[in-house]
């Protein structure tokens, strides 16, 4: 599995309230929720994101609420991957469970700039900045987690395993 696209760059401590504000959580409809993805810190994201694009952020991405709606709206916007220096633990777990690829890589998060073109190979954890030609190595997920993501989430993979 891999993805390639343009980078949207975000700071440290991006919280789930800005990824999807609670004022919209009166519906579980992912398509409707996705219209508001990132809107409290980046009103342009939803307008400009294209399938396969990559979010790059600092420390503690996804901190705050346990709302699974947060990784879900990022995935529903067809974001190919989130790269961050670190992820808040519930977001990390939720991203795996709903099948949103995420990678931790401090150096990539420092050096990759907004609007760079980036490709990511999930099997090897190799991140390539096509704009600068530089590559980075993140720890890839073990096969069982890659399988969850590839199947589209935890429950889909459980079902398959039965």
């Amino acid at each position: 599995m891999n993805t390639q696209g343009k980078v949207f760059k975000y700071p440290d401590n991006v919280d789930t309230d800005v990824i999807i504000p609670a004022r919209y959580l009166n519906t579980p409809d992912a398509q409707e929720l996705a219209l508001h993805c990132m809107e409290d810190i980046d009103t342009e994201f939803v307008k400009n994101v294209k399938p396969g694009d990559v979010m790059v952020a600092g420390w503690n991405f996804g901190c705050g609420s346990s709302r699974e709606h947060a990784p879900l709206v990022i995935k529903t916007c067809k974001t190919g991957c989130v790269i961050a220096k670190s992820f808040a633990r519930i977001f990390y777990r939720n991203a795996i469970n709903i099948g949103l690829p995420i990678l931790e890589c401090e150096q990539a998060a420092d050096e990759i700039n907004a609007d760079d073109e980036v490709s990511v190979d999930f099997d090897t954890g190799v991140i390539t900045n096509i704009t600068t030609g530089k590559t980075y190595k993140a720890q890839p997920f073990p096969p069982f987690i890659q399988n969850i993501i590839a199947k589209g989430g935890l429950l889909a993979s459980l079902k398959e395993g039965e």
Partner: peptide, 8 residues
């Protein structure tokens, strides 16, 4: 946890 973990 998230909703998927709750479901499982």
């Amino acid at each position: 946890v998230g909703s998927t973990d709750m479901a499982a």
